[in-house]
């Protein structure tokens, strides 16, 4: 069966700096797949190419049989692909509620939006308490929750998460990964997860790709990656 998302031999560069030499990945529907690797390996760039923030120089991105590579980001999100970008990128001077309403910008179904707002508040009760607060005043963990909640408001079929654990205390990371798992299992959202913390990523993912300087170095099921000591030592660092 064809995967939900297929990235086929994609290359991309920031001006003269080549970020992706050749990346091919497959994400089956309803799975959690993780992209691992060191800084500068091309993990974030891969997500940016998928969500349309960056044009690939070569290769194809296929979502549900539809070629989406090179299309603008505001079109891609309408195909129900949501991207929680590096550094969260919340709208700092807008309120929590305005941030969430912006997540539903592409939608007109009032009742559905209200349902999803309720669902997001159920996942992240802290956001409900702070709904009238300006987003820039939230803690790092709360901002991550808001970025995820905002992405969920687009009612995605595929969720791209860029380093959700970055800069957060271990307890909060645990909380966030529990929710990632719930979103996947209960709402049936497919997830492509970029992480530096390989241990926590492999605890939720079923399949993993290890990237090195813009190429896929290794890819295998999460269990195999965890079991292979060479891979763990040389690429995952634990």
């Amino acid at each position: 069966m064809a995967p939900m998302l297929e990235v086929r031999s994609v290359r991309a560069a920031y001006g003269p700096v080549v970020a992706l030499r050749e990346i091919s990945i497959r994400v089956p529907e309803r799975s959690i797949v993780t992209l691992l690797g060191a800084n500068g390996a091309g993990k974030s760039t891969t997500l940016r190419v998928i969500s349309g923030l960056m044009r690939p120089a070569a290769g194809a991105v296929i979502f549900d049989g539809l070629p989406i590579g090179g299309r603008p980001a505001d079109w891609v999100v309408r195909q129900r692909i949501a991207h929680v970008p590096e550094g969260r990128q919340i709208f700092a001077t807008l309120t929590v509620e305005e941030n969430l309403r912006l997540g539903a910008y592409t939608r007109d179904d009032r009742a559905g939006i209200q349902d999803d707002m309720t669902r997001v508040f159920a996942y992240f009760p802290r956001l409900k308490e702070r709904r009238r607060q300006v987003a820039g005043t939230l803690s790092g963990g709360e901002q991550q929750m808001l970025a995820m909640g905002r992405a969920l408001m687009t009612r995605p079929r595929l969720l791209l998460l860029d380093e959700p654990s970055l800069g957060l205390a271990p307890l909060i990371v645990k909380d966030i990964f529990r929710i990632i798992q719930a979103v996947n299992e209960e709402d049936g959202v497919t997830i492509l997860l970029v992480e530096q913390d390989a241990r926590v990523a492999l605890s939720v993912a079923s399949y993993g790709y290890v990237l090195e300087t813009g190429r896929v170095a290794v890819h295998a099921t999460a269990a195999e990656l965890k079991a292979n000591e060479t891979v763990r030592r040389s690429y995952l660092g634990y």
Binding site: D74, R78, P85, F91
Partner: peptide, 12 residues
């Protein structure tokens, strides 16, 4: 406020 994040929300 943030053009690229806005595009991710579907804003042209």
């Amino acid at each position: 406020l943030n053009p690229s994040a806005s595009q991710l929300m579907g804003i042209n």
